[in-house]
């Protein structure tokens, strides 16, 4: 069940705003996370998971999954080595034929408190001609006790980065996510990054008690950022293929249970590291999706596609994403929208 699409055109505005950030967007593809790769496997819930939620996929011995890893950019040009957010969308295939999704990214928190923030940021991030760096920038940065600015990418004369930084200067709530997005290096492998669900969800336990939780997939192999340069543009795809030929890639699903004072409906705010942390199960990816991902690329993943016992919170961004993802899926002629 995904959120209702009757949202007064908000989904369309969110969709259009993202398209505007990527002038080379190709119709029929995702507006962001355009380049991805599919994998399949199964999820094994932990022994304690049923104590926290009655959601179907945590009661079974194992449940089949389809996963799509992606780069955050909406550009159809693959550029695996770029500083960018990575995505990991997971679909749990339930015995009934229905499914439920977990949509995560490598950002620990989000940029926006609500859809309007998101539209403002997307507007700020529209590509503009890059101003050349002042000649003495290295020296002035040193004297200002700042970190040296990264060199501009000569291949793209336009960039939205300056606009995004200007937005962050005026909007303190957006800073943690923006700084992470602008500095997060590519991983050595899609299977060596942690992915966060960002939003708060509600678990209902067998006694009917509700707990507020945030989730992350943690790679069993550990997190490893890429430090080498000159890697091929599609090295993450190649690496995943080779990795899965050697053996499965595993992730642990970790739930953090919120406590008093935690932001339940504001994804820009992180939670303290002292919160109760529960292992909900382990994901085992065994192979790439068949037919070069022919079924995965059009497939809809939606963060609000949940099942009883695992509900969405009042997070306005989450609710808006639910509708916008469904709208976007229909726009690009996707499947399972």
């Amino acid at each position: 069940m995904v959120a209702s699409p009757t949202d007064g055109g908000l989904s369309q505005r969110l969709f259009d705003a993202l398209i505007a950030d990527y002038p080379d967007h190709r119709p029929g593809t995702r507006p962001v996370h355009a380049v991805g790769i599919g994998a399949v496997g199964y999820f094994v819930p932990s022994d304690v998971a049923p104590r926290f939620t009655v959601a179907e996929h945590f009661q079974m011995e194992r449940v089949n999954v389809t996963v799509r890893f992606s780069n955050g950019s909406g550009s159809p040009v693959e550029s695996d080595a770029a500083i960018d957010v990575r995505g990991m969308a997971t679909k749990f295939h339930l015995p009934s034929g229905d499914s439920t999704d977990l949509v995560m990214s490598s950002l620990p928190v989000f940029f926006s408190r609500n859809p309007q923030d998101f539209l403002d940021l997307a507007k700020a991030g529209e590509p503009k001609p890059v101003k050349p760096q002042p000649r003495w920038s290295r020296l002035t940065d040193m004297l200002l006790l700042r970190e040296p600015r990264p060199p501009a990418d000569p291949s793209s004369p336009n960039s939205g980065t300056a606009g995004v930084i200007a937005y962050a200067n005026c909007h303190p709530f957006a800073r943690p996510a923006i700084i992470a997005a602008l500095t997060q290096p590519a991983p050595t492998s899609y299977a060596r990054a942690t992915y966060h669900a960002i939003h708060t969800f509600k678990f209902t336990d067998p006694d009917g008690n509700v707990r507020y939780c945030r989730f992350a997939w943690e790679p069993v192999a550990g997190v490893r950022p890429e430090t080498r340069s000159g890697l091929p543009k599609d090295y993450l795809h190649t690496e995943l293929r080779q990795r899965l030929m050697r053996g499965p890639a595993r992730f642990v699903l970790r739930a953090v249970v919120g406590g008093q004072g935690d932001a339940l409906d504001n994804p820009t705010k992180g939670w303290d590291t002292t919160r109760l942390r529960v292992v909900m199960g382990e994901l085992v990816l065994t192979q790439l999706a068949p037919d070069a991902g022919a079924a995965v690329e059009p497939l809809s993943f939606n963060p609000t596609r949940v099942v009883p016992g695992f509900d969405i919170s009042n997070d306005k961004v989450l609710v808006a994403r639910g509708a916008a993802y469904a709208y976007s899926c229909r726009q690009r002629g996707g499947t399972g929208c």
């Binding site: 008093q260 004072g261 303290d272 002292t274 919160r275």
Partner: peptide
Amino acid sequence: TAPGDNLQ
């Protein structure tokens, strides 16, 4: 950081 953050 939060009113309930009192352990450890």
